[in-house]
Computed example of a mutant assay.
Amino acid sequence: MTKNELIAAIAEDSGKSKSDVSAVLASLAAITSKTLKSGRDITLGGVGKLSSAKREARQARNPSTGAMIEVRAKTIVKFKVAKDLAESVA
């Protein structure tokens, strides 16, 4: 499902306009980014939990050349799916 398809589905389901739904999704993305940058988790009831984690620097192998390269440390986003959602799709 694309972003536009999601917006249309939510608009139809909720009776709101597509522009209102689009604004809410844009706000959700901005707030999610800010919250995760501050180190806090986000729990979306019935969907899952977003959290940020530090990934340490490490050595890796370039699959094309076989040469060892240095991968820098970075912060990643983790997602853990809610049990109810996982069971409903299984």
Rank of each mutant, 00 (worst) to 15 (best):
R72L: 04
A8K: 09
R55A: 01
S19F: 04
V24P: 08
A53N: 06
S88M: 04
M68A: 14
I10L: 13
I31M: 08
L50C: 11
E87D: 14
K16W: 14
M1W: 07
L6P: 08
A26Y: 03
E70N: 12
V77Q: 11
M68G: 06
T43K: 09
A8W: 01
K37R: 14
A57N: 02
D13V: 00
K49H: 06
K16G: 05
K3A: 09
G48N: 03
M1S: 13
L25F: 13
K78L: 11
T32R: 03
I42W: 00
L25I: 15
E12V: 02
A26K: 06
A9F: 01
A11K: 04
I10K: 10
L25P: 11
G46Y: 02
S88G: 02
A29D: 09
G39F: 13
K37P: 10
N62I: 01
R58I: 13
E12W: 00
A60W: 12
S33R: 12
T32A: 15
K80P: 01
L28Y: 05
S52M: 06
K54D: 14
T75S: 10
M1G: 12
R55C: 01
N62K: 00
R58C: 12
A26W: 02
D41W: 01
R55M: 01
D84L: 04
V89L: 14
D84M: 03
D20G: 05
K3V: 12
L44S: 04
I31K: 08
S51G: 14
A23G: 15
M68I: 14
I42H: 00
R58H: 13
M68P: 06
S52A: 15
M68Y: 08
A82V: 03
T32H: 03
K37F: 07
A29L: 07
I76L: 08
L36F: 03
E87S: 10
T35F: 03
R40L: 12
E12M: 04
R40H: 13
D41Q: 07
